[in-house]
């Protein structure tokens, strides 16, 4: 609230009051009142006006300044009302009441949507649990009846897609439903490779694992999902001859980095910055192998929830490297303090 703007806003009142003052002065002269008294009354009148406007100005400025400053520092601006102190002047009270109503109604709406989202997520979780029962049965049936074996790749696809739905729902959830603890990276890597063994063996891809025998801080299940998405890309976009996927770690001062490197078809430089965007399929997505543009998007989203950093490097036609950075223990201790 600037003084200049305030005066501008009050210009009509000021003009009217000054007009009336001049009129009164003129009348006093007409009735031949002593000039000294006229001057005195004049000065008095101006003083009264000044103090009146200053008082009103200060009262409002104080209220609005406090409010605007608080708003500035607020991360979630829509909570502004919560920081407003009740003003003492009338029009301020009207504003306060109106904002109170608006904010209340907005909160009700937000709560409704929040509830809907949570309900939906819970339904998805329930549905996923349900669908896994017949899926387990199918997998066992394939094993018990070898003539069903050719269903394996299709069932595997269903399994992967179901996982994606589940983690999509989880990635959007507001509440925290992961558990960060010391996790053996080797166990996670082994589990993920085992899960994808059919496709790896089918395409005759060579797997190389180097010093992954380290512990990181993460949620093992989430990490399995993320690694699964990355590995599944490496398999999908592998070349036909001498395909190889290498998983290794690099030990940095502040973090442990897991590198997933393949010698597949790589990513176009123009596509590279966008591979973690939602629904982005790029050049590779159009070459055949089905692609939804969800895998890496979910990886990035889940990674940021877990406090991990994920990056990609690639040379078209030669390789793709995905890096996952796990902060070391000190980092978590630092944030806990």
């Amino acid at each position: 609230m600037r003084t200049k703007d305030y005066i501008k806003d009050k210009i009509v009142e000021i003009a009217l009051l000054l007009g009336f003052g001049l009129l009164a002065g003129f009348l006093l002269i007409v009735f031949q009142v002593t000039p000294t008294l006229i001057y005195l009354l004049g000065i008095l009148y101006v003083l009264v006006l000044l103090s009146l406007f200053t008082y009103e100005y200060l009262r409002r400025t104080f209220f609005y300044r406090t409010f605007l400053n608080a708003l500035e520092q607020l991360d979630k601006k829509y909570l502004a009302f919560e920081l407003m102190s009740k003003p003492k002047f009338y029009d301020g009270k009207i504003l306060y009441q109106a904002l109170y109503e608006a904010s209340k109604s907005m909160n009700e709406y937000v709560r409704l949507y929040e509830k809907n989202t949570i309900d939906f997520k819970e339904y998805i979780e329930l549905w996923v649990h349900e669908i896994k029962i017949p899926l387990s049965t199918c997998i066992l049936m394939m094993h018990n009846h070898p003539e069903l074996k050719k269903l394996a790749p299709e069932i595997r696809r269903i399994e992967e897609d179901i996982d994606q739905v589940l983690y999509y729902a989880r990635s959007n959830a507001t509440e925290k439903d992961y558990l960060i603890k010391k996790t053996s990276l080797e166990d996670v890597v082994n589990t993920v490779i085992r899960k994808h063994k059919e496709n790896i063996l089918l395409r005759n891809i060579q797997i190389e694992i180097q010093n992954v025998d380290v512990e990181v801080f993460s949620d093992a299940k989430w990490l399995e999902f993320m690694l699964g998405q990355i590995l599944s890309n490496s398999i999908k976009y592998s070349k036909e001859k001498d395909a190889k996927i290498c998983l290794s770690t690099i030990n940095h001062k502040d973090d442990t980095t897991l590198v997933i490197e393949d010698n597949g078809i790589g990513i176009k430089p123009s596509d590279l910055p966008r591979i973690f965007d939602k629904s982005f399929t790029g050049e590779n997505g159009r070459i055949g192998a089905s692609s939804t543009g969800m895998g890496l998007y979910l990886c990035k989203k889940l990674a940021s929830k877990l406090g991990l950093k994920i990056e990609a490097q690639s040379k078209e036609g030669e390789y793709t490297k995905i890096y996952i950075h796990f902060p070391k223990e000190e980092f978590y201790q630092g944030t806990r303090d």
């Binding site: 649990h129 349900e130 896994k132 029962i133 387990s136 199918c138 399994e159 439903d177 558990l179 299940k221």
Partner: peptide, 23 residues
């Protein structure tokens, strides 16, 4: 078919010897 880390930790704390998630 519940496959969160929390479910696993809970089961183990109740005295399960192992935990396998479906499918």
């Amino acid at each position: 078919s519940k496959n969160t880390e929390m479910d696993e930790v809970l089961s183990m704390s109740y005295g399960a010897d192992d935990y396998i998630s479906k499918p």
